[in-house]
Amino acid sequence: MDTTLITALDLAAALDGEHPPAVLDVRWQLGGPPGEQDYAEGHIPGAHFVDMNRDLAAAPGPRGRHPLPDPEVFGAALRRAGVRADREVVVVDAATSAAAARAWWLLRWAGHRRVRVLDGGVAAWAAAGLPLEQAAPPAEHGDFTPAPGALPTLDADAAAALARTGVLLDARAGERYRGETEPIDARAGHIPGAASAPTTDNLLPDGRFRPVQQLADRFAALGVKPGTEVGVYCGSGVTAAHELLALHLAGVDGALYPGSWSEWSGQPDRPVATGAERG
């Protein structure tokens, strides 16, 4: 089964079908407000809220602001949301898929094979005239047990090496890559050799992904060619998953550096490059 995107109308039809998917609402944005507030104000019928900081990441620390989650905590959250090994999962955020892509990547990393992202998120659902509800559904009893390791990851040393031997993409905003500003992490700049590839360039103005050919052309211009080894990082490993989803749509699979800039910049011995060049 294709593990990429689903439209609002197709999701609505699936929810009315014989085997409806589990829907995970993972709305989140850096600095808040909490996504659970938006969920309570209106969510796709039957969707369960899954918290980025509590369920989709471990506690912040030396490994970064959003380390990969403890499999037991992650698995328990998924089971409460009705995730089963044989049941399709659809993950949803507000509009841009930045948070939803994190859940999409984690589920696949944990071994689930039937995961899609609602293209355009709750905004696309509402724009299609589909209903929202406020009442949270009762906890379910799924059976999915994460088996981490199904997708590749990079540590800091591997990311540094890949920036020299392959293509390492920096998914943050261009001004953070260039070191002009750093609102949250220890130092400003980027990993030497990394290429600037903001996730916003993957999207149309309404928050949906660009057509596949446009994505493929974008990544080709960044040096991603057939056979190229590709890695991605961002601030803390969340929006980097969005880049990996865009790459996947374009037919390219890459590796995530989960610690990302929040880990790298916190290690004083790690070199930092600034400016528009890769360094």
Rank of each mutant, 00 (worst) to 15 (best):
A221F: 04
L215W: 07
A194C: 09
T200F: 09
R208W: 06
P211E: 12
G207A: 10
A195N: 04
F219Q: 05
T199Q: 13
A197H: 10
K225Q: 14
P211Y: 10
D217V: 01
R218N: 02
S196N: 15
P192H: 08
A216K: 15
F209W: 10
L204E: 14
P211G: 08
L204V: 05
P205M: 02
V224M: 00
A220N: 03
G223Q: 12
T200S: 15
G223R: 07
F219K: 03
V212M: 06
V212A: 15
V224W: 00
P198K: 10
A216G: 15
G223I: 04
Q214L: 08
L204D: 08
P205T: 03
G193K: 03
V224R: 00
L222Q: 08
D201H: 14
G193H: 01
P205V: 01
A195G: 05
V224S: 00
R208V: 08
A195S: 13
A221E: 12
L203Q: 12
V212Q: 15
L203T: 12
V212W: 02
R218H: 14
G193D: 03
N202A: 11
G207D: 07
D201L: 13
P198L: 03
A194I: 07
L215I: 03
Q213G: 09
A197Y: 05
N202R: 07
P192Q: 08
G207V: 11
P226S: 06
K225N: 06
T199R: 12
R210L: 11
D201M: 11
T199A: 12
A195C: 11
D206I: 06
L204K: 14
A221S: 13
A221G: 07
Q214P: 01
L222G: 03
P226E: 01
